[in-house]
């Protein structure tokens, strides 16, 4: 590597050889050993590096992170499930139960089951969680 090439690279990539293109680092280090005056260029460029490094990296806010996650594939499915459960927990649940009662009256007394078991049977068609599990587990 020539001193001119060394200067060119230092002005582009800065004072730390670890930031230089990988293919140039060994040759640059070899040249420095024989031309120690080139260290002056590295020192000057290191000062510019320090200026650049004074610009802090932005940290994503909690709100930004939440919005990004809300749009993600898994979150969209979970949100759909939660929306479905919210419907069921409100008027929808009452309606489902009423429909179940009506069916029960029409078809006669149900087989002996506990209350939760009967409710699970009624709600099974509306449970998007079953579809979520199938998709995630694959």
């Amino acid at each position: 590597m020539s001193p001119e090439r060394f200067e060119h690279l230092a002005q582009a990539y800065g004072g730390d050889l670890r930031r230089w293109p990988v293919a140039t680092r060994a040759a640059a280090a070899d040249l420095l050993r024989t031309r120690p005056e080139l260290e002056r260029r590295l020192t000057m460029e290191a000062a510019t590096d320090a200026l650049l490094d004074a610009s802090p990296r932005s940290v994503p806010s909690a709100g930004l992170r939440a919005r990004v996650l809300a749009a993600a594939p898994a979150e969209r499915v979970r949100a759909a499930w939660q929306a479905g459960w919210t419907w069921l927990s409100g008027a929808g649940l009452a309606g489902a139960c009423a429909a179940g009662l009506a069916v029960g009256v029409l078809v006669g007394p149900p087989p002996v089951q506990d209350d939760l078991g009967a409710l699970a049977v009624l709600l099974a068609p509306y449970d998007p969680l079953a579809a979520v599990d199938a998709e995630i587990v694959g």
């Binding site: 996650l69 993600a72 594939p73 898994a74 979150e75 969209r76 499915v77 979970r78 998709e135 995630i136 694959g138």
Partner: peptide, 9 residues
């Protein structure tokens, strides 16, 4: 991520 795995997301 394409499969929607939460940990990958």
């Amino acid at each position: 991520v394409g499969r929607g795995e939460p940990a990958a997301v």
